[in-house]
């Protein structure tokens, strides 16, 4: 085989820039997926301004803020894990990754209690309490459950992904020369963070 072909062949099998490009494109699809929901939110917020205002007051700003801080911090630890692996500090990288998973878990626990409290108060899709309220409030909570639920699902997926990466890092599959997989998980994680950055004010703050 000629020299040229070998060069290309190697190029085919290891193209980190290409991989990153693929990941970014995938992130766009996630972005637009949530974008579609934001469109729905925007329209209903516009249609039912007053009722959204009333409904939003029922959400606990404290829990929302806490979760925002948790998620932002987990984004930091994720990016630090990548710095660490690039500096060939395997232990520190694993440490940061575990912290990230831990924070994500904390986020989910928070979320669980928040949802449970709402459900306990009888506010969930199809409940009598909710159906007794105005259309705008039904929609607000419908959106709240669907959007935070979908976001929560992404957090779970992120946790699994980072968990797999931790294992890869331990095995050495992810190392200071080849950390594209970890980076991919990181990019995904940051996107989950960005989506929350928008969900937080839209549901908890704009009252």
């Amino acid at each position: 085989m000629s020299v040229v072909a070998e060069h290309i062949s190697e190029h085919v099998h290891r193209d980190d820039l290409g991989s990153r490009m693929g990941i970014w494109l995938f992130l766009f699809t996630e972005l637009v997926l949530f974008g579609g929901m934001f469109l729905v939110y925007a329209v209903y917020r516009f249609t039912y301004q007053q009722e959204f205002h009333v409904a939003a007051k029922e959400l606990n700003t404290l829990i929302g803020t806490l979760n925002t801080l948790i998620l932002l911090t987990s984004s930091l630890t994720m990016v630090l894990a990548i710095v660490a692996i690039r500096k060939d500090n395997k232990f520190l990288s694993i440490f940061f990754q575990v912290i990230t998973i831990f924070l994500a878990f904390g986020f989910m626990v928070n979320k669980y209690f928040e949802w449970m409290a709402k459900i306990h108060h009888g506010i969930y899709p199809g409940s009598e309490t909710l159906l007794a309220k105005g259309n705008g409030e039904i929609l607000f909570f419908g959106l709240y459950y669907v959007m935070t639920g979908l976001h929560g699902l992404h957090v779970l997926i992120g946790m699994v992904l980072i968990g797999v990466m931790t294992r890869f890092t331990m095995k050495g599959t992810v190392n200071s020369d080849k950390y594209i997989h970890l980076e991919a998980a990181g990019l995904y994680w940051h996107l989950v963070d960005i989506i929350w950055i928008f969900l937080f004010p839209l549901f908890y703050l704009i009252t």
Binding site: V43, G136, L139, L143, V146
Partner: peptide
Amino acid sequence: MFGVGLFDPALGGDPVL
């Protein structure tokens, strides 16, 4: 599945959306 109402006009949803 859940009757969330996001599009269902009976619950205030907007079929045009």
